[in-house]
Amino acid sequence: MKISKIIEIDSIIKTYKNEGLETNVLKGVSISVDEGDYVSIVGPSGSGKSTLMTILGCLNQATGGTYLLDGEEVGKLRDSELSRIRNEKIGFVFQAFHLLPGVSAFDNVMMPLIYCDKTPADAKERVKQVLIRVGLEHRMSHTPGQLSGGEQQRVTIARSLINDPKIILADEPTGNLDSKNGAEIMSVFDHLNAEGRTIIIITHDPIISEHARRILTLRDGQIVSDEINENFKKSRAGIARVAVK
């Protein structure tokens, strides 16, 4: 099977300009990610991890450099086209969940389908399926306020999956969770990756980055190391066992 590149960024620069004050956050970042890979990006606070994620997620345009997402040059796209790409190709998971308050888990997961050009006929069934997938079939009509942190994060994962995106981008997905809930969430990601979905997780927690196959370290806006995680195979074997059991 030929492995294709899902993400290729080259010499990405990001500079914020605020009232004449320039902040160089990303200073030439080049990464390429294979389809189906499991990548974590680590680094100290302020190193530019979240900024990199907004660029990878097409939430923001880079100041310089090029970005090919699934073979498409993203840097020159109009806002509405970026919206379409986000809708079709990327699923976001945030540290602070960012669920719509007062809206049921079901409708929160349904939300991205509103912005599809064509809402699939089986939308409701799909929502149900992804909620079952994250183990929340018994919480579909609960609002975020009625769910625990771990449950909320599982809703956001279901939401990120609803459009069957190629990439899941997660920024500190376990940052607001205790270690037990964090581990459960990570096992959901592990399974998603085992099914072949590309996952990029931003974290500063070594326990979390250990789940990835590849670990990138960002420091002061530059990639300072790019390593293959030796323990990945071992944890994968664990998943296989769980899956069998």
């Binding site: 669920l99 599809c116 459009n163």
Partner: peptide, 12 residues
């Protein structure tokens, strides 16, 4: 912001 992340255009 969340709506925009999941594909809402400005027009939406």
């Amino acid at each position: 912001g969340v709506r925009r992340c999941f594909g809402a255009r400005r027009a939406d």
